[in-house]
Design a protein around this nucleic acid. Structure first.
Lengths: 325, 325
DNA sequence: AGACTGCGTGTAACCGGTTTCATCACCAAC
DNA sequence: GTTGGTGATGAAACCGGTTACACGCAGTCT
């Protein structure tokens, strides 16, 4: 069995309180005593039990993060940004993926019992579940998800980037636009659509249920038989990549005949030459970690909602011009 | 303050032992008593403290996983596979990224104090650090990393896939091969190189230090001025993608003039049409989780080393033939 | 000399559960 | 009418730390 603080105390001929003080150099201890304790601890290879410490301090020194998935760079980057700040603050990070899990809400509630606070990414759990956490006094920060009640939230800007993206298309002479996606499913998509509409007067909404590649590839068929618009503005990259592949396979000139844009800037977008909007994923994670820390430490009581700027990334799916990288 | 087990005991007029029994329905409790306790717990909104429970049970009910990065699907997938099995086994997952951290070894040691066992991916920490963990009695499983001492390990098969890949190239008439990478840096790369050599007699080694895209793009320059081989067999996808991009930009016919292969099947490989070898990343993670569980539960004492099969994925960087998807 | 101050240290009470063991009520068997 | 067994329950020890508080001792000030 591993040595405990009492073993060290006996070995050093002092009380456990003194050992505790030495191990955390929290209070003044006479140098001679300190050295004696250090020697005893070293001799017994004493490593303080985190379990005992956590119970006594009534803190887990760990934060949680809930995400739907890690495939694709989106959430992975957020998690990394989060982890690096959490580590900096001396906290471990617990993860919970809700993918393919039907008891997500219960799992999140359980996780809340194992950490001092948690971050929830996207629409992984129900609003009701978030409210229950908040009511229970849990420290919660939402990321990439519409705010709920008085809970902290961090999101990426949508409207202004959508306007910039649309203006970019108009500048290139693309006037007849089709927005692909479902604004009713997510506030993010709704904001993007709104931003597009604010700049362009000629935008049609093509409603799709799934925002993935197959859906993108599939819907191209509808347009090949009738007239193509000047540009497809897709709600996300997967959709845009699916369309792009299918259009190119059909021999459609891109960006000459039709332009395509996405949203998120996933890694594949770079290889496919897809013009898109990049979200500051790392920053979303690190900002969430900082907000959460404020909640845990208790330095802030009023809820905050941060909106981080996004960035238009122009590639060959809209222009071959040399004026942009 | 939240209700404790003693509050519930008082409220229900029973002892804390009985409350404990009811909360975990571990032993027989008379139905009437059970209901009384349940009612009291509900009335007080009692949720057992995980901290207290963990200390009493002397277990964290959490496993750790250490990885270098999550960008790129490689490690992300492993983490997901790991998490899903861990969750199934009722354990939380603690993560630790060593990217950009100079105190990785210390961080891993600290993490080992906060979980019942951990998985280490790749060359994130020193062999010495792994041995220290093992000596300390920590439960450790290595993934995608050469085994150390008597520590469990899970790896992807290299040699046979390398042979299959090489045979595929020979079948296509590509005889003069160049293997790009450094077999001395990693046993994985060494095995891949060995596999290639076992099938082809005409393979040259092009030594590179960094296995990333810029290195790949850079080294193409050397070959454009002199003769190209029939195929470049790269140690990983990043390298291959870098070369592919540069070669295509230079107008070299692929796969006609030269063929290129990678290793890993990262997401971008699909878009770039790169022939490569796919590792069972999800399975690496889940297998590691199961091995780790055996160690923690204590059902096994002899170390194990699992080698999971890989899969050749043929794309347009080697053949345009219709015989393969 | 006596009171005061302050530092270093120990005692013991926590933190919130689990679990061993003793006890007690009840009933069947002899 | 004992004895023995069984099932439900409680008292208390325990997990391994932190920390409030008390105490002793030395040095300083009247």
């Amino acid at each position: 069995m591993r040595a405990t603080i009492r073993d060290v105390a006996r070995e050093a001929g002092v009380s456990i309180a003194t050992v505790s003080r030495v191990m955390r150099d929290s209070e003044a201890v006479r140098p001679a005593t300190r050295d004696k304790v250090r020697a005893a601890a070293a001799a017994l290879e004493f490593v303080p039990s985190q379990l005992g410490r956590q119970l006594a301090e009534r803190r887990h020194a760990a934060n949680g993060i809930v995400f739907p998935d890690l495939s694709g760079p989106y959430y992975a980057e957020v998690v990394l940004g989060y982890e690096s700040v959490a580590a900096e603050l001396g906290r471990s990070v617990l993860i919970l993926s809700t993918r393919g899990r039907d008891d997500a809400d219960a799992a999140v509630q359980a996780m809340a019992e194992r950490c001092d606070g948690l971050v929830i990414l996207g629409r992984t759990v129900s609003d009701e579940s978030v409210e229950r956490l908040a009511a229970r006094g849990a420290n919660v920060v939402l990321v990439a998800r519409p705010p709920v009640g008085g809970v902290d939230a961090v999101n990426a800007e949508n409207r202004i980037s959508a306007q910039a993206l649309t203006q970019h298309l108009l500048d290139l002479g693309a006037h007849r636009l089709v927005f692909v996606g479902d604004p009713s499913t997510s506030p993010d998509v709704a904001e993007r659509f709104a931003g597009v509409q604010e700049v362009s007067h000629d935008v049609e909404l093509h409603h799709v249920d799934d925002l993935d590649e197959t859906a993108g590839a599939h819907l191209v068929g509808d347009y090949l038989t009738r007239a193509l618009p000047d540009a497809f503005v897709c709600a996300n990259d997967e959709l845009a990549l699916g369309m792009l592949g299918r259009l190119r396979a059909a021999g459609v000139d891109i960006p000459g005949r039709v332009k395509v844009t996405g949203w998120d800037d996933v890694m594949a977008a770079r290889y496919a030459g897809l013009t898109t909007v990049r979200q500051p994923m790392r920053a979303l994670g690190s900002t969430a970690a900082r907000l959460l820390d404020e909640l845990i430490v208790g330095t802030r009581s009023t809820p905050r909602h941060e909106v981080l700027p996004t960035q238009l990334v122009i590639r060959t799916s809209t222009t071959l011009g040399k004026e942009h990288a």
